[in-house]
Each structure stands twice: as structure tokens, then as C-alpha cells.
Simulated scan of single mutants.
Amino acid sequence: MSRRPVIRKAPRGTMQLLLLACSFALAGYAGVRLLADDWLGVALWFVGAALLHDLVLLPLYAAADRGLVRVFGAAGHRDRTMYVRVPAALSALLLLVWFPLIGGQVDRRYRMATGLSADGFLARWLLITAVLFAGSALLFLLRLRSRLHRSTKERPPVAH
């Protein structure tokens, strides 16, 4: 009769602690590499980005979201706001990340660094935004159809 060895698993908290320590080490390494060349420029960019977000962008998208909730809430369909929020948030994130290329502000630098043209970023962003909203609308219609189909199945038959 052979006995199988007992394999002890590490406690869940230990694995989380190890992953957290690794992520801090990676972030520290990236920070040291980033700040090695132009630490003042990076610090100014970071502070400027935080201020721009907190003082300009946050009030703008909070107001837009409040308006969206008010419109859908008045119609009695507040649960449908997610079909607009998600594609709008993803589109805004893409705009934020690629804004210099979408706005055509770094065409020369981009061409010199990559050898490629920066033309077409605006058209691609608009196309991706359209696909995101179309996909959200399609998902909404499929769920609405499923809900309508389910509600008609649950109805008792009409007696003649």
C-alpha cells in the first residue's frame, strides 16, 4: 500500500502578498527608469495630469453622467444607462491615450520616430467609437428581445 505525498498549498493570503510585493517591485523599477532621465518633466506631467483630471475632466464627465441618468430616469429606464456609459467610457479612454495623434499634434515627431504617417488616427478612433456604440446597441436589443420573449412565454394562455 503506497501513500501519496501530501501536497500543502500556500495560504491564499501568502499568494496575494507575494503578488502584491512583485507588483510594487515592478512599479518601483518602472519609476526609477522613468525618473532617471527627466525627473522634473515627469513630475510636472504627473501633477499636471492629476490637476487636469480632478479640476476639468471629472466635473465634465460627472455632469454628463448625471444628465444621462436624469434622462433615462425620467423615462423610467435608469438601468439602460450602462449601454451608453460603457462605450462612452472606453471611447473617452482611447481618446485620452491617443489624443496627441488623434489631434494631429505630434505628426512630425511620430513620423521621425516610427517612419509612419500619423494620418488616420482620428478616423480610426471615430470608427472604433461607432463600433463600440453599435455593439452596445446590439447587446441592448438582444437583451430586450430576450426579455420580451421570456415575458410572453410566462403569460398564461387566454381561454376562449
Rank of each mutant, 00 (worst) to 15 (best):
I7F: 15
K9G: 09
A10T: 00
P11L: 09
P11V: 06
G13R: 13
L18K: 04
L19P: 00
L19W: 11
A21Y: 00
C22D: 01
S23M: 14
L26F: 09
A27G: 06
G28N: 09
Y29D: 05
Y29W: 14
Y29M: 09
A36P: 01
A36F: 11
A36E: 14
V42W: 09
A43K: 03
W45S: 13
V47G: 07
G48C: 01
A49T: 12
A49H: 03
L52W: 11
H53F: 15
P59H: 04
L60H: 02
Y61S: 00
D65I: 11
D65P: 00
D65S: 14
R66L: 13
R66H: 01
L68C: 05
L68F: 00
V69E: 15
V69R: 15
R70G: 04
G73V: 08
A75W: 11
G76N: 08
R78N: 03
R78I: 10
D79E: 15
V84Q: 03
V84K: 01
V86L: 12
P87E: 03
S91D: 04
A92T: 06
A92F: 07
A92Y: 09
L94Y: 03
L95W: 09
L95Q: 01
L95V: 01
I102L: 04
G103P: 02
Q105K: 11
D107G: 04
R108T: 15
R111Q: 13
R111D: 12
G115C: 04
S117M: 02
A118I: 01
A118H: 01
F121L: 04
